[in-house]
């Protein structure tokens, strides 16, 4: 990073903290602190909903996924618009009209206090950990590619976020989310422009897409019905819909956003904004990853994008082997570049279809040869470093940024990555503090707490959860595989929490005992499915369906049983 990049990055941090603190005026009472006194416009709430979901992992991981695997990950989001429509018609009016502050407060009104407390504790456990990962993932990447100290990087992201979230509550979180979303979108647009301009003379955008498409990277839809396949149109539409129903309908970090809107219809509009925009936005981020792949076909790419163990391998007894692989890679990469240029030329002209077929076959072979060398290099790094979790997909986009983006824009891109991490974690910290204070502290420890006291304790809870996230980050940074564990950890609970809300809204006879026992059974069943050897291969998107169905079924049966007993 050059001085201008530092100026952009530091300028961004100062601007975001200053505007967050400015938004913190007039948030002295609990309603203003937790719900912004229901004064926010739908578009700001809608952008905040999207910003909370769009973390740095999305920005860097999704482009990496586009690079390695094409755009088929977009199917993950196919259920989202369906879920938004269902939520707008069912759960959102219930929440808004009942005047609750947290999603779990509604569960006490409908069932009992034990169901509310269990749901809140599940949320705190799962989101407290994931908040740490939201900060850790970009911090690890930035510290490796920029050579920064990992703890300092985590604190540089965490501390400003804690500051404005603590002072400003939900209002500061929402307005900074809007600004951070603008930074992310601006930076991504700049990256796409640099990617397109970086294609060689004579190779246009459509040529580059044809070349990437010849390897299947633009095939978005998979119609096979295969439970073990992670992303298909069916897992996306059905599993994804259940996931979105649970995430947007029952997760405090999302519910709190749309409870701040001026009216019920504005709450709904803020969710429908995601329904309209989310799939195209994710498709564009994935396409940026595919474009990065096309870019690196025509420009020199490193053999491995994650340099963390390179020095270790070079100093080991297998340094000569590594050097030989590097030389082989450079030769294969050059061969592939020639094949890609030939294919781009052949795709551009309709003169000779036979020529295009031959060029395509040659390019496919050349790409397979490059992938083969890379796979051997990864195996060697794993062998020498004993780091089984080593992967470099998440480093592709940052490598492009640092190597090929012009000065100034590098700072903007790093600011965008930091921005995504801050906007996602601020929403989580705010929601964690709200659930801690309203569902646990005020409900169980101090029901007579005054408004001022509740706001004060919320500020302390924000600091607690922020520091907890930073500690989890430092801990997770040492163990790369932990990040994946925490990421899938959330999906073990989503379906069961959704099941409780389905019982609340859809099953008239459901009671507190049914909901409580149903929820525990659902969580246990999903854990068994996730870890039992016979069912382990089932894709995690289906856990949401399984959890919701089990909770609804068991909850309904137990409710009937306990009612008969009582009668």
């Amino acid at each position: 990073m050059r001085p201008l990049d530092w100026i952009v990055l530091v300028g961004y941090l100062v601007w975001i903290v200053w505007s967050g603190l400015r938004a913190s005026r007039r948030t002295a009472d609990a309603d203003a602190y937790f719900r912004a006194s229901r004064t926010l416009p739908w578009w700001a709430v809608g952008l905040s909903v999207m910003a909370t979901q769009l973390s740095a992992i999305t920005l860097v991981g999704t482009t990496g996924q586009g690079y390695a695997d094409g755009i088929r990950f977009v199917q993950f989001y196919f259920g989202l618009p369906i879920a938004m429509v269902i939520l707008c018609l069912t759960i959102v009016p219930f929440f808004y009209r009942s005047g609750v502050y947290t999603a779990y407060e509604y569960l006490e009104r409908r069932f009992d206090v034990k169901t509310r407390t269990l749901a809140a504790i599940v949320f705190l456990a799962q989101r407290g950990l994931s908040c740490g990962v939201i900060i850790a993932a970009p911090a690890i990447i930035l510290s490796i590619v920029l050579g920064w100290n990992i703890v300092a990087t985590i604190l540089a992201i965490g501390v400003p976020t804690i500051a404005y979230t603590m002072f400003g509550g939900v209002k500061a979180v929402t307005w900074t989310d809007v600004k951070q979303m603008a930074v992310v979108l601006g930076a991504m647009t700049a990256a796409v422009v640099v990617l397109i301009l970086g294609l060689p003379h004579g190779v246009g955008l459509t040529d580059a897409l044809h070349v990437a498409g010849s390897l299947g990277k633009l095939r978005a839809i998979d119609f096979r019905f295969d439970l073990s396949e992670k992303y298909t149109i069916w897992s996306g539409l059905i599993g994804g819909a259940f996931l979105s129903l649970s995430y947007f309908g029952c997760d405090q970090s999302q519910v709190q956003r749309y409870l701040t809107a001026k009216s019920l219809d504005e709450s709904r509009q803020s969710l429908l904004l995601s329904g309209f925009v989310k799939i195209p936005l994710q498709a564009l981020i994935l396409l940026t990853g595919v474009l990065t792949f096309a870019f690196f076909l025509f420009n020199r790419a490193p053999m491995l994008f994650n340099p963390v163990h390179e020095a270790e391998v070079r100093a080991s007894g297998r340094a000569a082997e590594y050097q030989a692989l590097l030389e082989e890679y450079q030769a294969r990469d050059a061969d592939r570049r020639v094949a890609a240029e030939r294919l781009a030329g052949a795709e551009g002209s309709d003169l000779n279809p036979m020529l295009a077929t031959l060029a395509r076959a040659a390019f496919t072979d050349a790409d397979a040869a490059v992938r083969d060398v890379r796979a051997r290099a990864v195996a060697l790094v794993k062998d020498v470093s004993h780091d089984e979790g080593y992967a470099d997909v998440n480093y592709v986009f940052p490598t492009f940024i640092l190597t090929y983006m012009p000065v100034g824009l590098v700072g903007l891109m790093i600011a965008a990555i930091v921005s995504a991490a801050m906007s996602a974690s601020s929403g989580e910290m705010n929601a964690l503090a709200t659930a801690t204070v309203l569902d646990l502290y005020k409900r169980h420890l101090n029901p007579r707490a005054t408004d001022a006291r509740v706001v004060l304790v919320s500020k302390l809870a924000t600091v607690f959860w922020g520091l907890f996230a930073c500690v989890v980050s430092v801990f997770a940074a040492d163990r790369g595989s932990l990040i994946e564990v925490v990421n899938t950890f959330g999906s073990l609970f989503y379906g069961s929490v959704l099941g409780v809300f389905i019982l609340a809204l859809g099953v008239k006879r459901a009671n507190g005992d049914g909901a409580f026992i149903g929820m525990i059974t659902g969580i246990v069943v999903v854990f068994v499915v996730a870890f039992h050897p016979a069912t382990r291969s089932i894709s995690y998107l289906w856990y949401n369906v399984i959890g919701a169905v089990v909770v609804t079924g068991v909850g309904w049966a137990v409710s009937l049983g306990t009612q008969r007993k009582a009668a």
Binding site: I71, V74, F78, P81, I82, M84, V85, C88, L89, T206, L209, H210, A212, G213, S214, G216, L218, R219, A220, I221, I233, D265, R268, Q269, L272, G275, F276, I279, P280, A283
Partner: peptide, 30 residues
Amino acid sequence: MRLSPRTYALVLVVEVLVIATLYWIGRHFA
């Protein structure tokens, strides 16, 4: 602005169009 059933239908219609476009992109650039 009051939301009508048409707005919800529009969300789903846009989704179908987006999925169809993605399908077309996959076939066109194959």
